[in-house]
Amino acid sequence: MVWLLLLHMAALLIWAAALLYLPILVGAHPNTPPDIDQQPRPYSSVGRFLFTRIATPAALIAIIAGTVVFLLNRTVDPWLIIKLTLVTALVVAHVLSGALVLRAEQPEKRGHIRVVSLILLSVLCLLMTAIVWVVLAKPMVVWPL
């Protein structure tokens, strides 16, 4: 049980770090097109590697390990439902990060990429802060009937 929780937290740290770095990486890329002599290689960006090889596997491991911990503990507290809702929003932000990487790889669609990266980074920071707060505070929520 403790090993699963440790695996869950380690995967969460890797997932969060990759998701926070991705918009910074994409937004910091220069908007200038490559030289004429230099042929761009499709699907060779660092952002794509970070998203497909690090962030997505870490997300899957974190979600699977968290689900197993949830099932073994049989916890059905209201704070957990709030946390799972926030994690669902984080998964949506993860998908949007992938869309940002795809958009950054197409030079004709790079307009406003820095603004989109900044907005995505802000949303990620808010979601991660909210998740950590809910997990640590475990607020008492009374559902109206």
Score class of each variant (00 low, 15 high):
residue 57 P to G: 10
residue 109 K to W: 12
residue 117 S to N: 08
residue 63 I to A: 07
residue 139 P to W: 09
residue 2 V to Q: 00
residue 134 V to W: 02
residue 10 A to V: 06
residue 137 A to N: 11
residue 95 V to R: 08
residue 60 L to A: 13
residue 114 R to E: 06
residue 54 I to A: 12
residue 86 L to E: 02
residue 26 V to E: 10
residue 60 L to C: 12
residue 44 S to P: 10
residue 34 P to K: 08
residue 58 A to Q: 04
residue 112 H to E: 08
residue 65 A to P: 05
residue 84 L to P: 01
residue 111 G to I: 11
residue 120 L to V: 04
residue 111 G to Q: 09
residue 63 I to H: 01
residue 123 V to E: 02
residue 60 L to V: 13
residue 115 V to T: 14
residue 83 K to C: 02
residue 62 A to M: 09
residue 126 L to Q: 00
residue 26 V to I: 15
residue 60 L to T: 05
residue 126 L to K: 05
residue 98 G to Q: 05
residue 56 T to E: 06
residue 58 A to E: 03
residue 21 Y to Q: 05
residue 121 L to Y: 13
residue 145 L to D: 09
residue 129 T to L: 14
residue 76 V to C: 01
residue 55 A to E: 01
residue 130 A to M: 07
residue 44 S to R: 12
residue 37 D to K: 02
residue 37 D to R: 10
residue 59 A to G: 07
residue 127 L to C: 09
residue 27 G to E: 09
residue 51 F to P: 05
residue 103 R to W: 04
residue 131 I to N: 00
residue 72 L to V: 00
residue 9 M to L: 13
residue 126 L to S: 08
residue 108 E to N: 01
residue 12 L to D: 01
residue 98 G to M: 10
residue 66 G to V: 07
residue 14 I to W: 10
residue 97 S to K: 05
residue 79 W to S: 13
residue 89 A to D: 04
residue 4 L to Q: 00
residue 116 V to F: 14
residue 115 V to N: 02
residue 44 S to D: 15
residue 6 L to C: 00
residue 89 A to W: 09
residue 19 L to Q: 14
residue 113 I to L: 12
residue 48 R to E: 12
residue 118 L to E: 06
residue 32 T to P: 00
residue 72 L to Y: 05
residue 50 L to C: 13
residue 7 L to Q: 01
residue 6 L to R: 05
residue 140 M to L: 15
residue 145 L to K: 09
residue 93 A to L: 10
residue 75 T to H: 03
residue 132 V to K: 01
